[in-house]
Every structure is written in C-alpha cells, then in structure tokens.
Design a protein around this nucleic acid. Structure first.
Length: 200
DNA sequence: CATGGGATTGACT
DNA sequence: GTCAATCCCATGC
C-alpha cells in the first residue's frame, strides 16, 4: 500500500482532456481509524474493499469529490489518496473548470484536482490501470522525483502516522512540505522569511 | 427515520 | 486566524 502511494508520486494522471503529474499522495488502511474502511464493508466502502487499481471517489464535506487508488488485494480496505498534481496538459481546460489562473493553484489540493480534471462521483469504481476514462501512467520524460515523507494532513484521527508522500521539488503540493524537507531547506542560509518552522 | 460528522475550500476578520 | 457551505452515509432510536 505504501509502495503504491510512494510510486504514484511522479506518475501522470489524465482525464477529461487534461493531465497532471502527481506530486502528493497519502495512504489509508482499514486498521487505522482515519480510513473510511475502518468501519468495515458498507455500501460506502465497497469500492475500497474491491480490486486494486480501481478509483475510489467519494464526496467530502458535501462539496468536493476526492480521488483514491485502491491499493490492496480484494478483501482488504486500503487506498492511496491523490492530493495534488502539477498540470502538464490541458491547462486551459483546467483553468476554465476551476475559474482560477495560476498553475500552482489549479490542482494543489484533493478537491481542486478532481474539479480540474472533471472527475466526479460517477467514476467511483472505474479502473485506473486499464482502458477506463481515467488513465494513470509513469511520468517518463519528466524530471525525476525525490519523494519526502511526512504525517497526513486534514484528518482528526491517527494524525501521527507518517503516511504522506510528496515530491520534494514541487510548488504544487497542498500544504507545506513534511518536516524532513523543511529541515533540509533550513540548512540553506536564507535572508528573508522562509517556510514556517516546524512546531516542536 | 433523524441526526451528526467529515481525507476541503474559499471568503472574510 | 475563523467560519460556512453542503451531501452522503454510518449510526442510533
């Protein structure tokens, strides 16, 4: 599961005439309370317990569609939440759907990227690896990725698990980078204000 | 059947 | 920094 999440960083995902390079992913697993599958097999979580490589799309806060890739064999509820992309294709389509212009604002969040790609709840259960409407493939030809790891964000349970994977060099992540990276950058002398220092 | 919460975002103080 | 919007579904009566 973590391997799936880790390896998704750097891949390209395409749908609806637009595509982006994945720069931020988080893992969720049935044995941990932040995961929807923690509640067991229900109508809502059926997709999570289904075959790996399928999309699990659900509505968040009644407003946004969030996209996951099912990441464990059938019967185990686990997935990788795709949290941010760097636009690489169909930028104008993304801008039209999002209503904003800056590149790093188009897909820098799990709700933003589904809107930019035109992904809705009707795609829950669709395959990501085959010939479905959503295509995920290796980001060959793009710059190599250096993945840094940190704790997941936006959740209220199991907040201590280091299950967030980010492209260290992308300006399109949804929130500040993991502490690992802030530490790495702190070693570089910097005159003005830099990234906010990690709270103890 | 009624209720409450949430893996978010954008607007506002 | 705070806060509302909005809907699916898990849970409890």
């Amino acid at each position: 599961m973590h391997e799936v999440a880790h390896d998704l960083v750097g891949c390209v995902i395409r749908h609806g005439g637009a595509a982006g390079r994945i720069v931020e992913v988080e893992s969720y697993h049935q044995e941990e309370p932040a995961c929807h599958a923690y509640a067991g097999l229900t109508p809502r979580t059926a997709t999570l317990f289904g075959p790996p490589g399928n999309a699990y799309v659900y509505r968040s806060y009644g407003i946004h569609a969030l996209l996951n890739a099912v990441a464990e064999p059938e019967g185990v509820g686990a997935a990788a939440l795709i949290r941010a992309l760097e636009p690489v294709e169909g930028v104008d389509v993304m801008r039209a759907r999002r209503g904003v212009h800056p590149l790093d604002a188009l897909c820098s969040g799990p709700g933003k990227l589904t809107e930019a790609l035109g992904i809705g709840l009707e795609l829950n259960g669709a395959t990501l690896t085959g010939d479905g409407p959503i295509a995920v493939f290796p980001g060959l030809g793009h710059r190599p990725v250096e993945v840094v790891r940190g704790t997941r964000i936006g959740i209220t349970k199991a907040t201590d698990l280091p299950w967030r994977f980010c492209d260290r060099d992308s300006p399109c992540v949804s929130r500040p980078w993991p502490a690992v990276m802030r530490d790495a950058r702190a070693s570089v002398a910097r005159s003005g204000r830099g990234p906010r220092p990690a709270p103890a």
